[in-house]
Write a protein that binds this DNA or RNA. Structure first.
Lengths: 223, 223
DNA sequence: TTTGTAATGTACCAAACGGTTAATTAAAGG
DNA sequence: CCTTTAATTAACCGTTTGGTACATTACAAA
């Protein structure tokens, strides 16, 4: 009854054959979804569009991720995981505290710049009051370790006598994050309002150095 | 034909009478729309929902603002206008540069906290790559003056010999904005990951003072 | 080979959504 | 008082959108 638009002499459309590859399909969906959510926001992203850009079908998205929210949550988790993994590569234990701090700042600054999709996801998540992050034990556990990095550097610096006492490592992390994050998250509006030249490579290098100075001057004694 | 659900003895529904109040209606729509866009994002906000929370009807929104994008743009412009007006109240000319700078930082920090809806709009705008802000001459003109404020303070400080030479006022503005903005924009995720106590009044006061210190130490000679 | 189950493709749907049509009323100008 | 226009109401519409039903295929275990 519903087969009115196909030629009658073509009895059944030949189905394309396929291989089973659950992990590949899932990874492919996540990669596409990350880009779409990052570009358009949670409500702005379209399941049809995501499916179209995938090598599989919409049915598969719902098969593996349940619904749109489920997909978004998994995208968020995967993004956090990848970014935090990138951070772990940094080894600063062998450096003197002042240098370690400066390196950490510069790395963080660059790392944020290199992961705009992640930054945008975090922005989106904040617009939603972090309600998805709140339901993800995975992510919360990952970040507990993020503070320890700067904590070690700071404690070392204090005991060596080169850092000021009485600072909260979380606040130092906050400072570094604030400037590194803002630099990416608000690039569009800030450039529009105060000049696009702030995004050139030279200006960004200068900015990075300046952020290093700011943090150093704040933490180091007689900085 | 379609009048099957209403009682037959009630011939015509009595139209509610109304007064004409174009400005009031427009203002009412803008206020509701600001909240809805701010809470749900551009795609996330629903025209029906906005209309429902208004004292008028959906038709009026389209009558005055054309379409959803038009409404969003006007909301954005109105929000910028109100926030920038609040900033103009600040008069720092009579203060010595160091004190003026510290006051500016503290004001900016507080001002951002007091306008979370505006902050969220700017976040949303950045997710859309500032494409609406780019089309608004009104907003761009408003912000040209924002830099002059810190420029005056800085120049005064340099000529008095208390500030370092060779700094870019835009970058100082950038620093202050970054920390003040991040403090509000990323409050949700940052609190979730590193402790909700950062949002208490005491911690926020301490943070504000610390931001003041950071900026001061950076700008002031021998800071 | 058979059979059960996980994985995939196709076609489809009900609801939500942005937007519109058309009639009606308030108020200002002559 | 009459006419005109701006403001407002109520009902409606076509499309988009998230989500499904159902048939089909790959693959592994028995």
């Amino acid at each position: 009854m519903s087969n009115i638009d196909s030629a009658p002499d073509e009895p059944t459309i030949r189905r394309a054959s396929w291989k089973q590859d659950p992990e590949g399909v899932k990874a492919n969906i996540l990669a596409v979804a990350l880009e779409e959510f990052s570009r358009n926001g949670l409500s702005g992203a379209r399941m049809n569009e995501i499916a179209a850009k995938t090598q599989t079908s919409k049915r598969m998205i719902y098969y593996y991720f349940g619904d749109k929210d489920g997909l978004y949550l998994k995208v968020l988790e995967a993004a956090y995981q990848e970014v935090r993994q990138g951070e772990e590569k940094l080894d600063l234990d062998h450096l003197p505290p002042t240098e370690a701090l400066e390196r950490l700042v510069e790395f963080t600054f660059d790392h944020h710049r290199k992961n705009p999709d992640f930054i945008r996801l975090v922005m989106i998540e904040n617009i939603h009051h972090g309600s998805y992050l709140a339901h993800s034990d995975v992510i919360r556990k990952m970040n507990k370790a993020a503070i320890s990095q700067i904590e070690e550097i700071y404690n070392k610096g204090v005991s060596t006598g080169v850092f000021r006492q009485g600072l909260d490592p979380r606040r130092i992390h906050w400072m570094i994050s604030a400037m590194s994050f803002f630099n990416v998250s608000n690039a569009a509006t800030f450039s529009l309002l105060f000049g696009a030249d702030l995004q050139t490579d030279e200006e960004q290098s200068a900015l990075r150095a300046e952020v290093g100075q700011i943090v150093t001057k704040f933490v180091v004694l007689n900085g």
